[in-house]
């Protein structure tokens, strides 16, 4: 018989993390359900990693309550960690060992029998597209390969919950897309994913639900499309004039869009019909150096909520 109200994978109430006087996570509430891909989106220093480290039972909670897999990290951290996989922000692979060795030593921390490790390692190497590098040392591998190996390693214990802290930071676009594809497959297999990122496209592609985090608090939460619908317009016109002119131009265009944003290097016009708005700009005799009409993204949501861009 299945439980009609299954306990959430992660439950946080009034969760806090402080380092001395500094408040990294400021009383947040959230629930992560089984099978869900849940994202924490925000700039560096927003409190994403601190939240991740508390969920993965590596960092003690400073205040509030946290339940992971129905257990208390303060007293059952070891048991919880036996059922979660962590992909940390900084790689912790053993560069002197081979790809396969790295999976083997990690599997032993979970006390998995050798045949089980062997069988899973082969499957995961295939999944991470590293089968041909199985017996190579890790050191010379590319950044993308190391990240994929780190993900494979986190999956060796067949975890119920996979936690990824900025999985694609520092990777080139091709490597990122390959990684997203792998994460998408995990999601389809029903693995619960918790992801932090400061890439809005990553969050849009992977997350069923996300919270926008800033200064240790949640500025908004919901599905990516719902957040865009609520906090932004359908389309955005990006205009680039000579530097220093943006504020003046914005004054003259105040009425052509629902909202305008002046950034250091460009002017954003929020509107339902980008082409019509751009035509109106031209009709007024303004000639930008470049113009782009695009759909609204989470980046715009973040800008609207915090007044700042995600990636500086």
């Amino acid at each position: 018989m299945s439980d009609p109200h299954p306990e959430p994978m992660v439950l946080a109430r009034n969760l806090q993390k402080r380092f001395g006087e500094f408040v990294a996570v400021d009383s947040v509430d959230f629930e992560i359900e089984r099978g869900e891909a849940f994202g924490f989106l925000g700039p560096n220093g927003a409190g994403k990693t601190s939240t991740m480290r508390m969920i993965s039972c590596m960092s003690p909670v400073s205040g509030g309550t946290l339940r992971v897999l129905g257990m208390d990290p303060a007293t059952q951290g070891s048991r919880i960690r036996s059922r979660i996989g962590l992909v940390p922000q900084e790689d912790s692979l053993d560069l002197e060992l081979t790809v396969l060795d790295n999976l083997t030593v990690y599997g032993r921390y979970f006390d998995l029998p050798r045949p089980v490790i062997r069988e899973r390692a082969m499957r995961l190497l295939d999944f991470a597209q590293l089968t041909e590098r199985a017996h190579d040392r890790v050191d010379p591998l590319s950044g993308g390969m190391k990240r994929r190996l780190t993900i494979a390693r986190a999956l060796i214990s067949d975890p119920d919950l996979l936690i990824l802290d900025e999985p694609t930071t520092g990777l080139d676009p091709q490597a990122r897309h390959l990684l997203w594809d792998r994460l998408y497959r995990l999601k389809q297999d029903g693995v619960t994913l918790v992801i932090t990122t400061h890439y809005m496209d990553e969050a849009e592609q992977l997350c069923d639900r996300l919270v926008v985090m800033d200064h240790g608090r949640f500025a908004a939460e919901g599905a990516p499309s719902a957040l865009i619908a609520r906090y932004s317009t359908k389309e955005v016109v990006e205009l680039r004039f000579r530097s220093g002119e943006h504020a003046e131009v914005a004054r003259r265009l105040g009425d052509v869009a629902e909202r305008t944003e002046v950034l250091a290097d460009r002017l954003l016009l929020y509107t339902t019909d980008g082409d019509a708005t751009l035509a109106e700009v031209h009709r007024r005799g303004l000639v930008p150096e470049s113009a782009l009409v695009r759909r609204s993204t989470l980046e715009d949501v973040f800008l609207r909520l915090t007044g700042r861009t995600l990636v500086d």
């Binding site: 590596m58 951290g77 960690r81 036996s82 560069l95 990690y106 921390y109 979970f110 006390d111 986190a154």
Partner: peptide, 14 residues
């Protein structure tokens, strides 16, 4: 450097 301890601490080890 290798961050071995942190890798261990993400597993059941304390």
């Amino acid at each position: 450097w290798v961050r071995t301890y942190f890798a261990m601490l993400a597993t059941p080890l304390r």
